[in-house]
Design a protein around this nucleic acid. Structure first.
Lengths: 206, 206, 206, 206
DNA sequence: GATGAATGAGGGTTCATTCAT
DNA sequence: AATGAATGAACCCTCATTCAT
């Protein structure tokens, strides 16, 4: 009949709504059960506990996006290893990366909102920070290629690096939380890439 | 004796610690009372409810910082009204504004942390957004002076404005949450100003 | 195939471990199933309920040991019926009886631990007391032969009898629960027999 | 009015009944509240948690009885330090000690039952064993005085010592659990003392 | 023989708040 | 100005068991 997994599916759907509306902590297991028309025991048959329920909604995408960023970093590493690039090329590349990221995000819109804004209290509450760390490594590499030895050292300190990774990450996250459509977001991705690259050039000026 | 207000003071101090450590929602009124060596009745004599307790810690600074930003915007409005400025002057001005903001923030460090990071669930949970809105108006005006009619309209859309205000606000907020000292933060304020202005210039390019 | 009973066997084995570790009440049917790699339905096919599962582990030995004690009592009855015995003979006999009991106990170590220490909450929670009652009848008979009419009546009251049966039973039970090896336990069985007989002689003194 | 502490008192009384009837683990906080005509919040105002509620019933007596035993051991130590005693005197002393112990137990009958039989799962679940350990030290000392160098070493091994302490402790505990009146129990205390001493003499024989 | 989804009551505990005194 | 007892709903979670398939 297909009825077998229906309950699990329904629970996940209801849970997603509840988490999106209230956030992890304020979401109520009881309310989720009630809305799904199911007893608590049924919920706990499918999911070990509240955290597991949240993870079931989020795990796959959380893992994937991390891998995507890591792979992206590695690929760039390979390409640029023996070639010098112009800032125009870097901007173009940044734009493309941004568009890819946005596209993936929008294909998993709800999950990203859960991960970035509603995970407080769950095992994924540090997901945003982990993302920032990966972004930072990415940026670090970008820096290796753009700089030509003349970077004022006192300005590109570790904190600045971290801050910029934050900037980038939150820029993407906001597209989602402010309700832009995919088309609008893709356009903004270009603005972001341009802007952030422009900022770099300003900092790196002698 | 002065004893009367002593209890209130002690409650506020303990509450600040509790909110800083746990955030508004997870903070416990009972624990606050216990740590202050006071009964719940006493707490509720001084403060109407949990929200009022939080507000008592935060209200004054929250109001002040908003007024400071508004005044700043108005003052700039008056100065630039009939003069054209170079981008160098704008950067210099941005730096000064940033330093002022940082200085005020650090003079009220704990309260700012409460407002920006620990207010979730309280009546101040939108404080960050309100700040962004004020910043946005500020930026909007900056734009009026820097542009000379040749801004590509499709890029400086309302969302971009909002996003940039976010960028700026969060840049300042992070100084605090990442534990920089005042001295470090002041230096970073310059980096931020430079970076953000650089981004602008890139966007405004034909 | 032989496969049919395999599941049952595995369940029993796992259940024994679980009951031994946690006791009847805290043992979890779900955990037993999980450890056995079997669903709850399977468990309930073989065993009516939790109590039945416990009984399946324990029933045979519980019945046997009772019969052994009863038979022992009857046999002694027959032997001593018209003969007088010295206290030395009685001690020797007590020692032999103790060694027999210990040997049987150790041949069914786990089950005895379940019965004597882990049965609380199950249908066998009174097993220990039932054993004591049988021991008491046994002792009662010992008394018939050792006494020569001159027992101070106020001391050998029914309660004393019951108490002594407890003493003996728990003495044997402890060998098991304190982790003695069979060899050590057999040696202790002699100590127990000597001690308990010595106690008797002291009580029976005028 | 005296009304203020009435609720706490009532809760303790009801809790005692519940624990006595069901034991620590199966006792239900909710049922205790209901029987006391009080909400759960009220119970948790007075008692931190289930364990604390149990401890409130039991703590004082548990501490006292341990101290009593320790003091007794120390006192004996002082008396016998340079005098040899006859076994008659030792028996007499054992009887007196037993009567004291029984008298104290019966003055706190319910609490002792809680401690010795109903504490499983609580912080006091090892109370019985702790008592045995204290008893063992006591017995150890008794041994020092009664022996005159001619004890067969292989028989008075550490395990035997522990076992005898168990024997003694459980003998006293049973008086309570079998519902003897104080008068009956005091008489039995003498039987116990005689019996246990008699057992010793038998073991110590060459 | 065995699956696995589902029940539903119950577990201990925490919470912000109220109010008579 | 402050006490402290009390509320009552809500929290997440576990349990032995059942039953259609």
């Amino acid at each position: 009949m297909g009825n077998e997994t229906e309950t699990r599916e329904r629970l996940l759907e209801v849970a997603k709504d509840e988490f999106l509306e209230l956030g992890y902590e304020k979401a109520s297991m009881r309310k989720i059960c009630k809305k799904a028309g199911v007893t608590t025991g049924a919920l706990y048959f499918f999911f070990k506990d509240k955290n597991d329920l949240f993870a079931a909604l989020v795990r796959k995408v959380a893992d994937e996006i991390k891998m995507i960023i890591v792979h992206h970093t590695e690929k760039e590493q390979a390409i640029y290893v023996d070639a010098k690039t112009t800032s125009q090329e870097l901007i173009a590349d940044g734009i493309q990366q941004g568009r890819d990221f946005v596209t993936y995000m929008y294909a998993n819109k709800d999950v990203f909102i859960l991960l970035l804004c509603k995970a407080n209290g769950s095992a994924y509450e540090n997901f945003y920070d982990e993302l920032v760390d990966l972004m930072e490594k990415n940026t670090l590499q970008f820096l290796d290629h753009i700089t030509l030895a003349d970077v004022p050292e006192n300005e590109i300190n570790p904190y600045t690096m971290h801050w910029l990774a934050h900037l980038e990450t939150s820029s993407f996250a906001q597209l989602l939380t402010h309700g832009l459509t995919l088309e609008e977001a893709l356009i903004q991705a270009e603005v972001i890439a341009k802007y952030l690259t422009g900022g770099w050039l300003e900092i790196l000026k002698k």
